[in-house]
Write a protein that binds this DNA or RNA. Structure first.
Ligand code: MN
Ligand code: MN
Ligand code: ZN
Ligand code: ZN
Lengths: 137, 137
DNA sequence: TTATGACTTTATAATCATTATAAAGTCATA
DNA sequence: TATGACTTTATAATGATTATAAAGTCATAA
């Protein structure tokens, strides 16, 4: 029950219920870019009795309030990210893990007068462990 | 029934059935990054009687053979792209259209020894028409 | 205290794009 | 014309997400 999280949620106009605080704390603690089911499974493991619907409601609220971002590395698989600042992502095609890739936000030289709101950069390939596994296996 | 398409499909190890040729021709002719349903609707409009399953089978075959690429600008919405060479995409949040954005492929300075296979860059915002509509409406 | 009402959580059903399965059709070749 | 490989098709299954509505929580006012 982090005081800092309670304050942060309030700053974003979010009533800090215990479920919301716990979910946000988990999101900032992990670097795994978890799915809703990952979050739900972790909360259960810790003995909390949240429903999956609450996890969906909560991450959607966080998204709407701009507290977290969605990362779509697969169709049918929405992941969530509480890290601040722009960065790219790398999805390992073999083990499925999603890593942060520090990078400046690319800016197109745009002749078309488009209005840019957001940028998503996703690389795919093989992580180091999976490269090793490929050689040895 | 483009001769060029027949040859191209053969080069990629794809038996050029009339359905496959027609679907590929449509993909190269449009710049809309159509979904399976867009493709299906267009074929119907032209009087062809393909099933949706054939469209799914065909685009999945094209993907596997490296003939086209998938563009995922939304979860739950797989779009297809036959344009060659790397380019980014822009998704208008208002009208939903997906535009090509010419751009060099970003390359991270990577300390981690990852093996990169592919890159996806997606911008979002408002296209020009929707900016105008916003002002006038 | 009790009532009120706004908000939150929950169980459950609905949606819907995609995949899986298996039957039917096509076509070259023996 | 029989065989078998491939292709298309109809249909069912999958599964992540959203929608809906009931139940629970909690502060505040009468
Ligand atoms: Mn991240
Ligand atoms: Mn494109
Ligand atoms: Zn890996
Ligand atoms: Zn637009």
């Amino acid at each position: 029950m982090s005081k800092r999280t309670v304050a942060l949620l309030k700053e974003h106009g979010i009533n800090p219920s215990s479920q919301r605080v716990r979910i946000y704390d988990y999101l900032v603690a992990t670097e795994d870019h978890p799915t809703v089911d990952d979050i739900y499974a972790e909360l259960q493991r810790e003995g909390h009795l949240f429903s999956r619907a609450t996890v969906y409601n909560t991450v959607n609220l966080f998204l709407k309030k701009g507290l977290i971002r969605a990362v779509r590395v697969e169709a049918k698989e929405m992941r969530f990210d509480a890290s601040p600042g722009f960065h790219a992502h790398f999805k390992c095609e073999s083990c499925g893990s999603v890593l942060d890739i520090p990078m400046d936000e690319p800016i197109p030289d745009d002749p078309d007068g488009l209005e840019y709101h957001g940028t998503s950069v996703i690389f795919s390939g093989l992580c180091r462990d999976c490269q090793k596994r490929k050689h040895s296996g």
